[in-house]
Amino acid sequence: MRWYLKAVGPKKVFEFLVLVVFIVFFLGPLLNLAILAFTGNWVYPDVLPKEWSLKWWSFVLEQDEIASSIGLSFLIAAIVTAVSIVICIPAAYAFARIRFPLSRFFLFSFLLTNAFPKMGLYISIAVLFYRLDLMNTLLGVVLIHLINVLMFMTWIPTSAFRNVHAAQEESARDAGASPFRVFRSITLPMAMPGIAVASIFTFLNSLDEAQGTFLVGIPNYRTMPVIMYSIISDYPAYAGAVFSIILTAPTIILLLAARRFLSADVMSSGFQLK
């Protein structure tokens, strides 16, 4: 045993230990969740369940409310992503290309929504929403979700647009392209990785948003995470496990799909204040 450790060297041993710790802390809970979700009967102190079954899956999926909440969540996430693209991409382009007074202040102001405690912000917004009759409306929920994603959706594309050099746009003008065509064929495709990353974050963020939706959307707009709260408190842990897998699945699928866009580079350059 000892000769083996010596042969592989302390660095390898250390890396192995880090990997083990990572697996225990990161994959452990997920594994536990997966086991719980497929459990029929599991009594302490058994390591694995005595009986496996899909009964909690059918229980969860049979609840009308849950199925509809999944649909609603995806609908809202799609609307939020679409609306935020329409609002934020032109803003990001303006921040990246046009020099206007206080542009840095405006860009910075998008950070402010994330600087306050969320609940306090939501409550003050709720007061406003009551006045405007936006409580318990789809528009209200979408607006609340937008507040959370404005920062991602402006900062990351802004840096993506900044990375398109003026010479690259000017070359295209020079080759005969109108300003609109330059944006469509050169600037937008080149900024696409950044925009894609921001959109995915927006989608996932909206899918995951519970606090604001709970405050503004109840009782008519009950999304997945909102339902999750009640399931966790009302039903055994098994149902909660099934539900959290359903909630996690789209995140993992989207992140895998977006893997080729995702890089630390895109992320970090998005959060520089230039």
Binding site: H165, A167, Q168, E170, S171, A172, D174, A175, I186, M190
Partner: peptide, 10 residues
């Protein structure tokens, strides 16, 4: 037609 110092290509 213009050739720039750098970043000419897409």
């Amino acid at each position: 037609a213009m050739v720039f110092q750098s970043y000419n290509l897409w």
